[in-house]
């Protein structure tokens, strides 16, 4: 894998031979750095490179006496301190580890059950309630009232109050534009409800505005799109 520099290999071989000669050395500290000192190709190459770069100048002076004759290290090994890495500098230890759970089963099970519930609800509802299919489309017979799909009934309701361009384009256009830009308008960094009273009130008013309009358009508008009470005049609403 990596090419071991000549002087290191020689030193390691010498050390190995010496260790075999005196097999009974102390074995307790040998476990500390077996990979670094054993001389096999277990030293990470980048460490080796750094070691040789740093050791180029002092190597003849320091390595000369150390390699063949030293014998001072445990188990006959000679070790050199390359660098000291403090734990904080490369390990990014967070002060508060996040409390996490496995997606399986905790999340997937909930998702599966929710999907099952919705499927069952749709199925049962579809068994008992039929989707409307009125008579064939006829351009000569305008139903009274003519209503848009329920989610557009708020717009249709606005049409009774404003010029069509204001009701159909300007107001929903501005509403949508502001909605899209909400995260760029709302600079408040807090997510806690008690810090966001204004944003929450504004959104609630906005949602209620449309909800009320849709309700009125759906249930309180009869023939001629005139205002009616459904409990007096009946329901003019198809889904």
């Amino acid at each position: 894998m990596t090419e071991i520099p000549e002087h290191l290999r020689k030193r390691a071989e010498a050390a190995k031979a010496k260790a075999q000669g005196a097999a009974g050395g102390g074995d307790a500290p040998a476990g500390d750095a077996p990979a670094a000192a054993s001389g096999d190709e277990k030293i990470p190459s980048h460490l080796l490179d750094r070691g040789t770069a740093a050791g180029d100048q002092p190597a003849p002076a320091a390595g000369g006496p150390a390699a063949p004759t030293g014998g001072s290290g445990p188990d006959g090994h000679n070790q050199r301190l390359l660098t000291v890495v403090k734990s904080g500098s490369i390990q990014d230890t967070k002060a508060t580890p996040q409390d996490k759970v496995h997606v399986w089963p905790h999340l997937l099970l909930a998702e599966f059950l929710a999907a099952l519930a919705v499927t069952l609800f749709t199925l049962l509802f579809s068994i008992f309630v039929n989707a409307p299919l009125l008579e064939l489309a006829d351009f000569n017979k305008t139903p009274n009232p003519s209503k848009a799909p329920w989610y557009f009934l708020g717009l249709q309701e606005l049409l009774t109050m404003f010029h069509p361009m204001v009701a159909g384009v300007t107001i929903p256009g501005i509403g949508l534009f502001v909605l899209i830009l909400a995260p760029y308008i709302d600079k408040n960094p807090s997510k806690r409800p008690e810090d966001r009273k204004f944003a929450i009130s504004l959104m609630t008013v906005h949602l209620m505005f449309w909800a009320v309009l849709v309700m009125i358009g759906s249930f309180f508008r009869g023939p001629g799109f005139n205002f009616i009470f459904p409990w007096n005049s009946g329901l003019f609403f198809e889904l």
């Binding site: 489309a137 003519s146 848009a148």
Partner: peptide
């Protein structure tokens, strides 16, 4: 798509609204 009275006139109302785009 069902092409019944509900479909035709709901879509008529809806597309008339879009016709007022400036």
């Amino acid at each position: 798509l069902p092409w019944d009275q509900l479909a035709l006139w709901a879509v008529t109302v809806g597309t008339n609204m879009m016709g007022f785009t400036p």
